[in-house]
Nucleic acid binder design. Structure first.
Lengths: 253, 253
DNA sequence: TATATTTGGTCAAACGTTTGAATAATCAAG
DNA sequence: CTTGATTATTCAAACGTTTGACCAAATATA
């Protein structure tokens, strides 16, 4: 448990003792290295997501991360390697976010055991989770933009993203659709409908500018995201031939 | 009619006579101008779509268009102006493609007059048109990539694209959804479902790499696009509470 | 000749990268 | 408790290349 945390955050690795009580060797040399590294990685993610690889200069990046220009190459050994590290970091970052959502979906589908009301609830829960996460999580904003960019303009890092994060998500949705449609999860039509299912959700992230322009919104907010979910979920349930989910308010009436 | 064609292709504008039979004034000076301009514009579209504004250098562009570096600035007066012209050209190009699709949809929805079988056929026809166009038309490939880029990373040209091409498309889908759901076309939930409707289709273009990877395809083909349409259309009909469309084969049986 | 276009070249600025000195911490020796 | 070696990091300057822009001369048609 403590191991997991230290791996996922990856900070303070050199600052304390290890779990055996042995003295961990303190960092030598001028301090601040891990700090700068983290700042560079964070700035790089945001900038690459917003403007793409060639749209970001090393100088701009160094300025944003508040480090010297040379420090970027010192820590990462070049722009290309930095981009690679950014993708690795992205994959690490979104794992703990989508992992539980995927886990919950697969669990609930399994527990539903074909019961269609239960499948409706799985679907609604999953979509609520996804909308809230993809559209709402401030901390995930640049990651989503980064992903969308890699989707439609795959770099050499794309296969890794596909294998580590996209395939598990699509496979999970596949089990839901297979249960709802009573088809094999490997059926090509299930895979296509998984794409439509996920693509529909992601499109609200990819076309944020369009949605906001057409709805007269400045940006998404919690209430607006809830409204999107409440609007789209019934349509998706119907598309799967699943019964509508009765909301709490409707139950009271 | 002939006017539309000449506008849409925009080539040979200086090569022949106009429709009144008057002699069009032949171009003076060194020849090749309109040719070079068109080649530059075409290369610029493809390159900007693939790598983005800053991912393309003027020299690379000149090489791709087989013109001298100076000729690009001669014709367009700079990289920024060339990008602007590329967007104008894009809007002009996709107009004749999506215009008829939109027109057909609005017409058929109007003629359906609320009849739900007729609305099913509208929907199916529109989606078939869209899938075939967005995924299939080779000539539209870079335009779609360009659009998707502008969606999620709007440049200063975005408002024009929105007004000229996106809003009409969304409004047309809005009339379909309003008829099917018996709501006002301006209802926010109709606008959101229009986004989901279109976004779902576009996602097959945006995530081409994902779809192909998961289906084991190298690329889309006519048959595969038909298969996508045949898979997704029934789901969309169900999501709108519209009756399924009976295919020709099923009718014979 | 007049006009339109192409051409090759130059320019300052910005690019990614490299370098070597300066800095700040730890560690081992005295 | 100081000292000097060692290590890690920062920093400013410079490298050679590429960038977008610009220009005057050359060229090809009317």
């Amino acid at each position: 448990m403590t191991v997991d945390v230290s791996i996922s955050t990856e900070e303070n690795a050199s600052a304390a003792q290890n779990e055996r009580g042995e003295r961990a060797p303190r960092a030598r040399g001028r301090p601040g290295g891990e700090d700068s590294r983290a700042r560079i990685l964070s700035s790089a993610g945001k900038l690459f997501a917003a403007r793409g690889y060639s749209g970001v200069s090393m100088r701009e990046l160094a300025r944003a991360a508040k480090v010297n220009l040379g420090a970027v190459n010192y820590h990462f050994g070049g722009k290309g390697k930095l981009y690679h590290e950014t993708v690795l970091r992205l994959i690490e970052d979104i794992g703990p976010v989508f992992g539980p959502i995927i886990h919950r979906l697969v669990d609930e589908v399994s527990n539903a055991a074909g019961n269609r009301e239960a499948l409706s609830h799985c679907t609604a829960n999953f979509m609520k989770d996804m909308f809230a996460t993809v559209l709402g999580k401030r901390s995930l904003r640049w990651q989503m933009a980064f992903l969308l960019r890699e989707f439609h303009q795959p770099s050499r890092e794309f296969p890794m993203i596909l294998a580590e994060r996209i395939n598990p998500m699509h496979d999970a949705v596949g089990t839901l659709l297979a249960a709802a449609l009573e088809l094999d999860p490997k059926d090509p039509s299930v895979r296509l409908r998984s794409q439509a299912f996920i693509g529909q959700i992601m499109s609200f992230g990819a076309s944020r500018s369009v949605v906001c322009a057409r709805l007269g919104w400045d940006d998404y907010s919690k209430n607006r995201i809830d409204f999107i979910a409440a609007t789209i979920i019934p349509a998706t349930l119907a598309s799967l031939g699943l019964p509508p989910v009765v909301t709490n308010e409707e139950k009271r009436a």
